[in-house]
Amino acid sequence: MLDDLITQDAGLRMVPVDRDALTVRVGRLRQELAALPQEAEPGRARVLSRWIGVGYLCLGHHEEARTYLRRSLALAWALGDTRAVVATGINLADSYRYDGDGSAAEALYRSALDTARDRVPELVDFALQHTGKHLMEHGDLTGAEALLRETLALRIAKGDGELIASTRAALARLRRLTGQ
């Protein structure tokens, strides 16, 4: 929904490609969400809430991001959509990390990673990558390296070049931080 308007900065955080265009798109998604019949389409409301939250996250509006991401997460739980629980939990963790609350971020990343390992193995690499970037930002470079190497192995096994490149970029950043 917003992938074409989001990129990563040098710190590997999601940022807008075009801030104005992302702001407009998030506004449209909010209008679509507001127009949904009450409780008639919880799946669509979940998806829209998540993407609005991600958009606000990228725009630096962390409190707004958390409002929508919490709504999406609650809907994912209510719908029994464990895949969405993991993905949205990671986005919510990102909102805390980007806002400087490492403790809240860590708890959410660990919960998402545990859930992925137990119930959604296809998302383990996603959870590992984000948890690894969190650890890197908070100075646990050894822990970050272990998680990112595990991520890389999983992504190589998946054969997804874009995901492999993303993890290699994170490992390259880690090497720069450690002076290697």
Score class of each variant (00 low, 15 high):
Glu39Gly: 10
Val124Ile: 11
Arg155Val: 05
His134Glu: 10
Ala93Lys: 00
His138Glu: 14
Pro42Ser: 10
His62Tyr: 10
Asp114Phe: 13
Thr82Glu: 08
Leu48Val: 11
Leu123Arg: 04
Gly100His: 11
Thr142Phe: 15
Pro121Tyr: 08
Val124Arg: 03
Trp51Phe: 05
Arg168Ala: 06
Leu33Asp: 02
Leu147Glu: 02
Gly161Asp: 13
Lys133His: 06
Ala116Trp: 00
His62Val: 10
Gly11Cys: 12
Arg176Val: 06
Leu123Val: 07
Ser49Phe: 07
His138Pro: 02
Ala169Cys: 08
Leu5Ile: 14
Pro121Asp: 11
Asp81Ser: 14
Glu32Asn: 09
Arg50Ala: 12
Ala35Lys: 07
Val47Gln: 03
Asp9Pro: 13
Gly11Arg: 07
Asp140Pro: 02
Met14Phe: 08
Lys133Val: 05
Trp77Thr: 09
Leu177Lys: 07
Leu152Val: 04
Leu73Ile: 04
Ser72Pro: 04
Gly100Arg: 09
Arg19Cys: 08
Gly80Arg: 03
Thr23Pro: 02
Thr82Arg: 12
Leu171Lys: 15
Arg70Lys: 07
Ala144Trp: 01
Glu39Phe: 06
Val85Asn: 00
Gly132Thr: 14
Tyr96Gln: 07
Thr88His: 05
Met1Asp: 11
Trp77Asp: 10
Ala21Tyr: 06
Tyr109Gly: 01
Leu163Met: 13
Glu64Gly: 04
Asp101Ser: 10
Tyr68Leu: 05
Asp4Thr: 08
Gly43Tyr: 13
Leu147Tyr: 07
Ser111Phe: 06
Ala105Arg: 00
Leu113Tyr: 02
Thr131Trp: 11
Gly53Pro: 02
Ser49Asp: 04
Asn91Phe: 06
Thr82Asn: 00
Leu174His: 02
Tyr56Val: 00
Ala153Pro: 04
Val17Trp: 13
Leu108Thr: 01
Trp51Asp: 08
Ser166Cys: 08
Tyr56Trp: 13
Leu92Pro: 00
Thr115Lys: 12
Glu41Arg: 11
Ala78His: 04
Met14Pro: 05
Leu92Asp: 01
Asp160Ala: 15
Arg149Met: 09
Ala78Pro: 06
Arg66Glu: 08
Gly132Trp: 01
Thr82Ser: 05
Glu145Asn: 11
Ala165Leu: 03
Asp114Pro: 01
Val26Asp: 00
Asp20Arg: 15
Asn91Gly: 05
Ala153Ser: 12
Ser103Pro: 11
Tyr109Asn: 03
Ala40Leu: 15
Gln31Thr: 11
Glu150Thr: 07
Phe126Tyr: 14
Lys158Gln: 09
Glu41Met: 14
Leu147Ala: 03
Arg70Ile: 13
Arg70Ala: 15
Glu145Gln: 06
Leu154Phe: 02
Leu48Gly: 01
Pro37Met: 04
Ile6Tyr: 07
Leu128Met: 10
Ala93His: 01
Asp3Val: 05
Ala165Asp: 15
Arg30Ile: 11
Glu39Asn: 08
Leu135Asp: 02
Val120Leu: 05
Gly11Leu: 05
Leu33His: 15
Pro42Gly: 10
Leu123Asn: 01
Leu135Ala: 12
Leu75Gly: 00
Lys133Trp: 14
Lys158Gly: 09
Gly143Gln: 13
Ser166Val: 12
Asp94Thr: 02
Thr67Asn: 11
Leu123Glu: 10
Arg46Lys: 06
Lys158Met: 10
Arg155Ala: 03
Arg46His: 05
Asp9Ser: 15
Leu163Lys: 14
Tyr68Val: 01
Arg19Lys: 06
Thr23Phe: 08
Ala116Ile: 02
Glu106Asn: 13
Arg83Asp: 12
